[in-house]
Amino acid sequence: MKTAVFFWLLSASLFAQELPDIRSIPPDLDVPALIAGPPAAGKRVKVGLHVLYLPTDWKPGAKMPVIVELAGNGRYTNKFGDVSTGLPEGSNLGYGLSAGRGFIWLCAPYLNEKGDAIAITWWGDAPTYDPQPTLKYLRETVKSVCQAYGDDSKVVLCGFSRGAIACNYLGLYDDETARLWCGFLSYSHYDGVKTWPYPHSDRESALVRLKRLGNRPQFICGEGSNAQETEAYLRPLLPKADLTFLSTGFRNHNDAWTLRPSPVREKARAWLQRVTSGRPADPKP
């Protein structure tokens, strides 16, 4: 068994090294600069501790689908030059998935234990990592944005790295939070696959949260063989669930892959349109 695991890890590592770097593909999108002022079509602004972007085709009175995004851990760098700031303004997934049209893009923060500042790593403060201030802010912000601009029946939660784990850990933490979402997109990592430094990251606790998913769809992707590792964990638990597993096709742990053309980005966009249109999943081949 140990030998088999070793060779699986070795092949996964080699696979990741053979994949292209995202910088080998020129971006076809640039995230709009963060500016001061009230929300408006085509503008990305800071509102309290979160960042809000109204798409270029938004008009007053319109109720549009919403992408809610959770960032990766901050203070992260790797040998490929990938960086994560841990701040809402550093996020890229939602803009790449929507190309700035058709979806409101809300980048939500994680909060410290007092709830008065952004947590750069995980949520709350060590060693308790209390998620309640973050959950409260998340629920209130999503409801506020939907009341003003969005369709509360078409809210998709997505996240990168820490945010991918948080799609279930926070997004399905309790019934009140879980009912906000019509679908989930997790990029790189997944709740329950590994244990982490915060409480209740074990598989038994993750399964309790997973029960709140119901029949809602999830798009699960990652660099290298990351998504396949999640599939090996999740498929036996939810064999009939509406789950999509794909590699990004890049080696990078970097959410800027959605700012570049790729087959997986096209599939993610098609999935997003399907989830927010209420259409059923395509039949399995």
Rank of each mutant, 00 (worst) to 15 (best):
R260T: 04
D151Q: 03
T134W: 09
N254M: 10
Y190V: 08
F160Y: 10
H189G: 06
I67N: 01
G171P: 07
A232P: 07
T56M: 14
G115F: 11
A232K: 11
A36F: 14
G90P: 00
G150D: 06
V68H: 02
C158S: 01
V68C: 08
V68N: 03
A241H: 12
L14S: 06
Y110G: 03
G86L: 04
L52H: 06
R162P: 01
V45H: 00
Y190C: 01
P127Y: 08
Q273V: 14
V142Y: 07
L87N: 01
A119Y: 09
Y53H: 04
V156T: 02
T276Q: 03
T276K: 05
Y129W: 13
P39S: 05
V47W: 03
G90W: 09
F80I: 09
A166F: 12
V193C: 10
R44S: 00
Q147P: 07
V66F: 05
G102R: 00
A206C: 11
Y190P: 02
F219M: 00
A281V: 14
R209K: 13
G249W: 12
C146I: 11
A178P: 01
P261V: 07
R44H: 04
A40I: 10
G74V: 02
G96N: 01
W105M: 02
Y110S: 01
P60T: 02
C167V: 13
P26H: 08
A40F: 15
H253F: 13
A119G: 07
A41P: 05
L234P: 08
G214D: 05
Y169F: 14
G61L: 10
P239T: 04
V145Q: 01
P60I: 06
S205F: 13
R139W: 11
P239E: 02
R279N: 12
P131R: 05
V145D: 00
P197S: 00
D175A: 13
G102F: 13
K194E: 14
N78P: 05
A62V: 09
P20G: 06
N226V: 15
R179F: 13
V83I: 15
K79D: 13
V83F: 15
R279F: 15
P280I: 04
I22T: 07
W58G: 00
P109D: 04
L170N: 03
S144T: 09
L34Q: 04
S161V: 10
P280Q: 05
D151R: 03
R212F: 13
A126Y: 15
W122S: 06
Q147V: 11
W8C: 13
P261Y: 12
G81L: 03
H253A: 04
R274W: 12
P55E: 05
R44T: 05
L93W: 09
I165W: 15
L170R: 06
H200G: 10
I120L: 14
S11H: 11
L106R: 03
A40W: 13
K63A: 08
D152V: 09
A281H: 12
P127S: 04
G100H: 02
G72W: 10
L246Y: 14
L52Q: 00
P109F: 07
A227Q: 08
A4W: 15
P280R: 06
T276E: 02
A241D: 05
T77S: 10
G278R: 07
F245G: 03
L246T: 10
P88I: 00
T195V: 13
D282G: 12
R162F: 13
D125L: 06
Q228I: 14
E113I: 12
N78W: 11
M64E: 05
G163D: 03
